[in-house]
């Protein structure tokens, strides 16, 4: 793909984000977009956010579970960049008016205390470099009409990042079993679903190692202090005004999030 096309699609997605409207799937218009092209479009979209005053605060890993990989016809995860504008505080309702077609996912978040420079990073390096982990919610959103995404569409659209909320109980990855830790998700006081860390690449730590290695090849920095959302352990939960979600990770703690207002779609 030509640099001017990359720029044009990156700008189109950024403007859709600002205007809270959707655009047609890129792959429908450009059937030859490669995954590399898609990441370059993502870089452009994120660069526009940074130019407008946001900072990079971390990364998210997506497409980490087998059902989602099967659905998109891929064999590996993807990633997007987290910016300061996506951070929501636990305890403050999320205004759905900021979003287009949001869905919630419950995850384990990592915060790094050392840089992770791939390739060659293993799960043991990730544990060594982790300051702490937290339960969290990612509210994914898509700038692509009706979530009609193929892998190139979601990667170009910054891995469908919306906003995210970190819980407040910090855990040490050496104090609990990240792979076998149960995940209990409740919606409006009722059990919604359960899962386990192993749903994410066998263990969330494996997803972070994959990310470090992928970023290393691409030359994208992965620094101490960054937040990593390691991938959804739950099914996607549609959310509307008044909904409240609680996720609890066994041996770690809970994160709670509530929603107000109406999304664009």
């Amino acid at each position: 793909m030509k640099p001017e096309d990359i720029e044009r699609y990156g700008d189109e997605l950024y403007e859709a984000l600002l205007a809270r409207r959707t655009v047609a799937p890129l792959l429908e218009r450009e059937p030859d977009i490669t995954l590399d092209d898609a990441y370059r479009i993502q870089s452009r979209m994120v660069a526009r956010r940074v130019a407008a005053g946001e900072t990079i605060v971390g990364k998210k890993i997506g497409v980490t579970s087998k059902p989602v990989q099967d659905f998109l016809g891929v064999f590996q995860p993807d990633f997007g960049q987290l910016t300061s504008g996506m951070v929501c505080r636990e305890g403050e309702p999320i205004d759905l008016g900021r979003l287009i077609q949001p869905k919630a996912e419950a995850e384990l978040a990592f915060v790094l205390k050392r840089d992770l420079v791939g390739p060659g990073i293993t799960a043991m390096d990730v544990i060594h470099a982790t300051d702490y982990v937290l339960p969290c919610f990612e509210i994914v959103d898509s700038r692509i009409t009706d979530w009609k995404i193929k892998i190139q569409d979601t990667v170009a659209d910054n891995a469908s990042c919306g906003v995210f909320v970190l819980g407040q109980t910090k855990g040490d990855p050496k104090d609990f079993d990240m792979s076998l830790a149960g995940m209990v998700l409740e919606k409006n006081g009722e059990l919604f679903s359960t899962s386990v860390g192993a749903a994410v690449q066998g263990s969330p730590v494996n997803a972070v190692a994959w990310l470090a290695n992928t970023l290393g090849v691409l030359g994208i920095p992965f620094k101490a202090g960054e937040i990593i959302l390691s991938g959804s352990q739950s099914a996607l939960v549609p959310v509307v005004d008044g909904d409240e979600l609680v996720c609890t990770i066994g041996g770690l703690g809970s994160c709670r999030v509530s929603f107000r207002g109406r999304s664009a779609v």
């Binding site: 079993d177 792979s179 076998l180 830790a181 149960g182 995940m183 209990v184 899962s195 386990v196 860390g197 192993a198 609890t248 990770i249 066994g250 041996g251």
Partner: peptide
């Protein structure tokens, strides 16, 4: 915590 035990 008997409520949140994961199993694979």
């Amino acid at each position: 915590d008997l409520r949140t035990l994961g199993a694979v």
